[in-house]
């Protein structure tokens, strides 16, 4: 599909595209409204007015500032949809509506903006959510890095499970839905031009279908957490701290691809600390673990889920990892920005 904004006239975003006048109206209606096409985007009211079934509702927001905007396995557009959809899904909600706020740098390529918008629209369609409201701002050149996107999401909780750290029980099994460390390594490799042979593709993907499938199969899920910034280590430590429990995991059970292992070797960064965008941890009673693994394998033919550990209530809140030599160590959260080592 061609970019609907005449490129010969406006090949680049100008300040006026966010100024509230004619140019902005053209951009909003020709680009965003056209791409996200749905009944709520009629433009008659200042807010989208939604019919949401009575009951528990989940509401979340996240901002996306990834650089580069396009990376192996995804782009900022699909990421901005999947990321927020995944936050809803891992709260046990059925994602329904999104908002989309764009902060665009003056001079940004109109065609690239169209590609990003198309990618968002496709991701929204794939995950069954509607983008029902939005905002566009243009900032002076140099005031942002191309484009930033904020999405907020609303979803409904249509079951009786309380999917949260407070539901975690002694002996719960801890599963992850696939290999770890792809997204962060793919983005860092692309940004720093590390040029890994074979390349690392981001795992960026929606998790909502997977969660819905597990709930439908009456798997007694206690808690879910997507393994985004800070990676598996941060996610498990946050949960240990919120639930007041310890989590023991086994290193040999945590899948890491050869490409990601190579990236970690070269940079000295721990795979457990690297961001993922299509993986989650599942906490559930041990007797459900096998069924859950089976369902995950059935749904996702590519990524291998794994039972990586268990929960113990020992009066502490820590994550420990046992290596293949039988030595147990602490798995801590990363400190600040991940910085590659010198040699």
């Amino acid at each position: 599909m061609q970019c609907p904004v005449p490129l010969d006239k406006y090949p680049h975003i100008q300040l006026a595209h966010g100024g509230g006048g004619k140019l902005m109206q053209d951009l909003v209606s020709n680009m965003f409204r056209a791409a996200f096409d749905n009944a709520h985007l009629g433009g008659q009211t200042d807010s989208a007015v939604l019919d949401i079934p009575a009951g528990r509702t989940a509401f979340t927001t996240d901002s996306y500032v990834v650089s580069p905007l396009f990376f192996p396995g995804g782009d900022i557009g699909s990421l901005a949809v999947y990321g927020t959809v995944n936050d809803l899904a891992t709260s046990g909600a059925n994602p329904l509506y999104l908002s989309a706020g764009f902060i665009i740098e003056e001079g940004f390529s109109m065609e690239t903006l169209w590609k990003i918008t198309q990618s968002m629209a496709e991701a929204a369609k794939e995950t069954g959510v509607m983008v029902v409201t939005g905002d566009t701002k243009v900032v002076e050149r140099g005031k942002c890095d191309g484009v930033y996107i904020n999405t907020s999401g609303i979803g409904t909780i249509e079951h009786d499970l309380d999917i949260s750290p407070r539901s975690i029980k002694e002996g719960d099994a801890v599963l992850i839905t696939g290999d770890i460390g792809r997204h962060g390594s793919a983005v860092m490799s692309a940004r720093e031009h590390l040029g890994f042979e074979g390349g690392i593709k981001s795992d960026s993907a929606p998790l909502a279908d997977m969660v819905a499938g597990l709930i439908e199969a009456e798997i007694d899920i206690h808690c879910l957490r997507d393994l985004t910034r800070g990676g598996l280590a941060a996610a498990l430590n946050e949960i240990a701290s919120a639930a007041g429990c310890s989590i023991d995991i086994v290193e040999s059970a945590v899948p890491v691809s050869r490409e990601v292992s190579a990236f970690c070797e070269i940079t000295g960064i721990d795979a457990y600390h690297i961001a993922n965008e299509g993986r989650m941890a599942i906490f559930l009673p041990h007797e459900f673990a096998e069924d859950c693994l089976g369902l995950l394998i059935e749904r996702d033919k590519i990524n291998l889920p794994s039972l990586i550990g268990r929960v113990i209530f020992d009066g502490k809140s820590r994550v420990r990892i046992e290596n293949p030599y039988g030595v147990i160590r602490i798995l801590d959260i990363p400190s600040g920005e991940l910085l590659p080592r010198i040699c």
Binding site: R318, I330, D332, S335, L339, R341, I342
Partner: peptide, 28 residues
């Protein structure tokens, strides 16, 4: 002294001994 608020370089470097003990031993 922690990696977030280091008093010395050995706590922040990826090769520093203090960072190694902090990351891998049960400090708490």
């Amino acid at each position: 002294c922690t990696p977030e608020h280091p008093l010395g370089a050995t706590m922040v470097s990826s090769e520093g001994a203090c960072a190694a003990y902090y990351n891998y031993m049960e400090v708490r």
